[in-house]
Simulated scan of single mutants.
Amino acid sequence: MTIGQHVPAPSQDVIVAALLHDAPEFAPAEPDVYQALTAAYGIEVARIIAVLQAEHRSLDEPDPPIHVDDQPVLLASTADKIVALTSLLRRAQSTGNASDFFDRRPVLRGLLPYFRAFQRAAHPRVPASMSAHLDAALTPLERATACAQGAGAR
């Protein structure tokens, strides 16, 4: 839905890949998930998902790279970030104590500069409304985590 809000007539491959991008994390070791994805949805869907999985794994590294040169991946990745960050903020707010929620998530706080850098790098390459949507998801998270860090320092 997020891609469709911002991209007129998005490719079916991008939509399918965005919907299934977490499948490799939950699939059994056999048969090979990428072979199954290719057989069911085509090589482009499997390729986009493989690149998204590599991006997810890179977030565990000290300085994750930002790639914005592959448009289908960029659209799916941006939508994934919008959905995930919006959901995270909603979960934090539902606890009644967003500062405490973020105090307990130092890894997330450490990734926020990466997400902001991604948003800035993607900005000229995705629809303006999509970049604005990612910005709108990031800004309150940055504020909430700044409050969390301030509260934790007291």
Score class of each variant (00 low, 15 high):
Thr2His: 10
Ile3Ser: 01
Gly4Ala: 11
Gln5Arg: 14
His6Arg: 01
His6Ser: 03
Ile15Met: 11
Val16Ile: 15
Leu19Trp: 09
His21Leu: 01
His21Thr: 00
His21Val: 00
Ala23Val: 13
Pro24Phe: 00
Glu25Val: 12
Glu25Phe: 14
Ala27Trp: 07
Glu30Lys: 13
Leu37Asn: 01
Glu44Asn: 11
Ala46Pro: 03
Ala50Asn: 07
Ala54Gly: 11
Ala54Cys: 10
Ala54Lys: 09
Glu61Asn: 02
Pro62Ser: 09
Pro62Phe: 05
Pro62Glu: 10
Pro65Glu: 07
His67Cys: 09
His67Asn: 10
Val68Pro: 00
Pro72Leu: 06
Val73Pro: 00
Val73Leu: 04
Leu74Val: 06
Ser77Lys: 12
Ser77Cys: 09
Ser77Val: 03
Thr78Ser: 06
Lys81Val: 06
Ile82Ala: 07
Ile82Gly: 02
Leu85Tyr: 07
Leu88Tyr: 10
Leu88Glu: 13
Ala92His: 05
Asn97Phe: 05
Asp100Ile: 08
Phe101Cys: 05
Phe102Asp: 03
Phe102Tyr: 15
Val107Gly: 13
Arg109Ala: 12
Gly110Arg: 06
Leu111Trp: 04
Leu112Trp: 04
Tyr114Asn: 06
Phe115Thr: 08
Phe115Gln: 08
Phe118Glu: 02
Gln119Pro: 04
Ala121Leu: 09
Ala121Trp: 07
Ala128Tyr: 09
Ser131Ile: 05
His133Asp: 15
Leu134Asn: 03
Leu134Ile: 09
Ala137Ile: 01
Leu138Cys: 03
Thr139Val: 15
Leu141Gly: 03
Ala144Gln: 03
Ala146Asp: 14
Ala148Gln: 01
Ala148Arg: 01
Ala153Tyr: 07
Arg154His: 13
